[in-house]
Amino acid sequence: MLAIVDYDAGNLRSVQRACQHVGISDAEITADPDRVRVADKVIFPGVGSSESAVVTLQARGLDDALTEYYHSGKPLLGICLGSQIVLDHSEEGDKDCLGLLAGRVKRFQLADASLKVPHIGWNSVDIVRDHPVLRNIKSGDEFYFVHSYFVEPADEATVYGRTNYGGEFCSMLGRNNLFTTQFHLEKSGRLGLGILDAFKEWDGTPPC
């Protein structure tokens, strides 16, 4: 069973529909920490504020469940807000997050006043290093972004993709059995679905 973690952050049904489209028939939206623990695969999606998201995760006991799941070595995919909350800390509400991966979440501070925040729309991703979930896409492919904050991991070796918006930021992140995208792969057409399709086949073994 694939668990889509429900913490009242965004439209989880779009993620579920995308899963069904690539042939993941057992994708289940759940707020139950025990379902997360027993899942074979987990998607941690989300839009909105990390401040309220972390509060909801803790209230439901999902923070511990996600941490335990991560340490089990099974594949974990974070999307958008889910890619931010896995780090140590977010500037948004000055909030401590899950800390699965060392780093911080920062707000865009753009010198170019013509660039708008949130960063909304299709932007290209440069692949920094190979990963099994990226086998269907190429450097320069475009994906759909909606966010005002971005991730800044402490370890450069965890950066898998970069995107330019008034400067470069990390748009794909990975460590061990965890992989995340800042963009909404479920709303990024065939190429976004291609990442999900590759995730379906991935057993969580990191690339060597």
Binding site: R13, S14, H21, S188
Partner: peptide, 8 residues
């Protein structure tokens, strides 16, 4: 539409 179209 949501079942078939994967753009916003």
């Amino acid at each position: 539409v949501a079942k078939q179209v994967f753009i916003p």
